[in-house]
Design a protein around this nucleic acid. Sequence first.
DNA 1: AGAGTAATTCAACGATGGATGAAATGATGC
DNA 2: GCATCATTTCATCCATCGTTGAATTACTCT
Lengths: 258, 258
Amino acid sequence: MTRKALKRERATARRKPIRPKGTRTPKRNRGRPAKEDGTELMRDRILNAAEELFAEHGFDGVTVRQVTRRANVDVALAHYYFDTKRGLFDAVFLRRAAIINEERIKAIDEYQANPGPGGATIEGFIQAFLDPVMERWATGGKGWKDYLAIVAQVNNTPKWGGETMARYFDPVIHRLIDGLRSIMPGARDIDLYWSYQFLSGALTLTFAETGRIDRLSSGLCRSSDEAAVRSRMAPYIAAGFRCVCLAKNRKPPGGKQP
Amino acid sequence: MTRKALKRERATARRKPIRPKGTRTPKRNRGRPAKEDGTELMRDRILNAAEELFAEHGFDGVTVRQVTRRANVDVALAHYYFDTKRGLFDAVFLRRAAIINEERIKAIDEYQANPGPGGATIEGFIQAFLDPVMERWATGGKGWKDYLAIVAQVNNTPKWGGETMARYFDPVIHRLIDGLRSIMPGARDIDLYWSYQFLSGALTLTFAETGRIDRLSSGLCRSSDEAAVRSRMAPYIAAGFRCVCLAKNRKPPGGKQP
DNA sequence: AGAGTAATTCAACGATGGATGAAATGATGC
DNA sequence: GCATCATTTCATCCATCGTTGAATTACTCT
């Protein structure tokens, strides 16, 4: 017994049997398909189509019918596998979140266990945190790019920015902050968290590849230029952390100091 | 002759006069209202309601009916004033964009004309660029906060991140970059633009006040803490610019240098 | 005072939204 | 070889969507 059965149980005797209507016209293309391997599983077809569309138009800008049309699949199948539209979105979001999160934890652990000569640095930790995502973004193909565009939208939406992001990403971020704290013993947590906030904004916007910088710079910069991002983002962010989190560099610019 | 007349002209004789239906039931509450001053104009009521809802749910997550219901106004009135849903959104977006853009240009001009003793600094320019928004965010009330939440979503959406943001914000950004270039004669444009990109992400996410950092820090930080942002954002960002744009500070972290 | 115009509401249109019950059909296990 | 199960499609439900034509009422100008 799989999803359908569960669903039917949940919805026991909800409606009257409304459908005394027309007789069925038995046509082709119905029922369980021949198990022809090699083709993508329908469930994955739906996920992939949804990923593309959500990346471009956001959750509310996409209809389930658009997704299933792109996947060449019946509408009902999306509900069969994912129950609701929201369930489909969550499935898209989860699929890759698990992967980068694991890679990130591993990267930070490895860096801390074995930093280069001279010991661990702020830039080193930031790099370890960024690298897995950067790598997927640069070489993971359209699927990963679409996924990162979705993350950017979720991160910047009040409705989801709080809970959805938290559930999936908080542990990794705490791991990063632990690492940074270990090499900045004097840093206050409040400074570390705010610095991460700025990091988060810069990161998600950049990987979202909105095309904004291309236009702004009249084509001088390209959103998709991985080398450009690779050589600048970590240094930029590390400099910010150094400035904000190391007390000696803090200079109150007029405002009161908390 | 105002909007309605223009609209009717545009749609000359488009449809057959479909409506041989029921007779009108003349009730209260119709037609042009008595000119009772002191109350908000209906056009503004619609704009305000739309601003709130767009901030929370995004363009596609809001229906025109929700907006007019919150504004206590008939649906048709929204189309009377703004033609389409998109027109309504643009009106919301434009209303405040004009204000901050003007203030920002003025702030940067003034800073460059009269920096403190010691001359202009990177941090000074950044501060001049941020201050008008910061001020509105901190003291402008819910309207401005909602507006900035909308900006964050637009900025991070591929569909609009390119064109919509460009049309309204590019001139100010170029003004900022001109200022920065004037005190960093050796800086390459490509570095300045990429640095701005990181600034942009940090800025829009922070002002969007998604509540993310509150949860992440277990309540240690509050999204709405203006003093915390005021004392950290400009230094963080200025440090990043210094690091990326001043050649002597550039150190290639393994990747190839463009 | 009457004609014209601006602002507001009513009532509907056609399309489409998410969702689901039931039929169909191949695979699986006994 | 037959009953059960998992997967897929068909056909539809009902609510709601953006948008509009026309009626209605108040204000403005002559």
